[in-house]
C-alpha cells in the first residue's frame, strides 16, 4: 500500500501541515523563511532562497512542510533516498518572460545566467533536491487535465515498480503550493496517515490548485475527527 505520510501547503496568507493539524497565518511573504526557521519547519536555512524565483520558493516551502508533517529530519549535506515530481499549469512561463524581457532590455547583448537557469520547468525541484539532499528521480510532468490526481498516479507507479522509494510530489504556482510525501507502507497505516487512493479520490477532477488545498483541508478535518473518535 502506498501511504501519504505528510502533506504541506502554503498560500499567499497561510501555511499548514495536515497531520499535525497546523494552520498558521502570516502577512509578510519576505519573512516566511525566518518564520519557518523559528518554528523548526526548516531544519537548515535554504541557501540562495532570496535569489530563487517564486515557484522555486513555494516548492521548497511546501516540501519543508511535508517533511515536517511526516516528522522526517534532514541535515545539510546528508543525502536522502527521496525523489521529487512536480506539476503545475504554466511550466516556467513567468520565468521565461522575465529572462527574455531582461535580455531584450539589455540591448540583446547580455543575458543573466541566474535568470536563465529558471527557464526550465524542472529547476524549482532541482533547487529543492539540492537543499533537501534528494537523490531519487527528479522530474516535471504536466497533463491536459486533473494535474494533481494524475501526478499522484505517476508517483504510485514509480513506487510500486521500485523506481523510487519515497517521493515528494509537488503542485506549485507563484501563489500557492502543496506537497505530498509518499512512501510504501507494508503494515497498517498509523498516526492518521492516509492511503494514497483516498487522497486521489479527494482531489480527482480538481484542476485548480487553491481548490486542491481546500479539498485536502476538508478531507483532513474529517479524517482527524474519525481518527480521534
Amino acid at each position: 500500500m502506498i501511504s501519504m505520510q505528510g502533506i504541506g501547503w502554503i498560500t499567499e496568507d497561510r501555511f499548514g501541515s495536515i497531520f499535525r493539524e497546523n494552520i498558521t497565518e502570516y502577512t509578510d511573504r519576505k519573512k516566511v523563511h525566518s518564520i519557518f526557521r523559528d518554528a523548526s519547519i526548516l531544519l537548515a536555512p535554504i541557501k540562495n532562497f532570496g535569489r530563487f524565483d517564486k515557484v522555486s520558493r513555494n516548492t521548497c516551502l511546501a516540501i519543508s512542510l511535508a517533511l515536517f508533517d511526516a516528522g522526517i529530519d534532514y541535515s545539510k549535506g546528508t543525502m536522502q533516498d527521496f525523489g521529487i515530481l512536480s506539476t503545475d499549469e504554466e511550466g516556467c512561463l513567468q520565468s521565461n518572460i522575465e529572462y527574455f524581457k531582461d535580455y531584450v532590455e539589455c540591448g540583446r547583448k547580455l543575458s543573466r545566467g541566474n535568470l536563465f537557469v529558471y527557464t526550465l520547468p524542472s529547476t524549482p525541484i532541482a533547487e529543492a533536491a539540492i537543499n533537501f539532499g534528494c537523490q531519487g528521480p527528479v522530474l516535471y510532468l504536466t497533463f491536459q487535465e486533473d494535474q494533481t490526481n494524475q501526478i499522484l498516479e505517476q508517483g504510485r507507479i514509480m513506487i510500486e515498480s521500485k523506481e523510487a522509494t519515497n517521493l515528494l510530489i509537488v503542485n506549485a504556482s507563484e501563489e500557492e503550493s502543496i506537497c505530498f510525501l509518499l512512501k510504501e507502507e507494508k503494515g497498517a497505516l498509523k498516526n492518521g496517515w492516509m492511503d494514497l487512493e483516498e487522497v486521489q479520490r479527494a482531489v480527482k477532477g480538481i484542476g485548480v490548485l487553491p481548490e486542491v488545498i481546500k479539498k485536502i483541508l476538508q478531507k483532513d478535518k474529517n479524517e482527524v475527527i474519525d481518527y480521534i473518535s
Binding site: M79, G83, T123, E127, I130, F132, C134, G136, P137, V138
Partner: peptide, 11 residues
C-alpha cells in the same frame, strides 16, 4: 532504466 539527482548544483 534509472533516474537520479546529484542534489549538488543547479547548473
Amino acid at each position: 532504466w534509472g533516474i537520479s539527482c546529484d542534489a549538488n548544483h543547479v547548473t
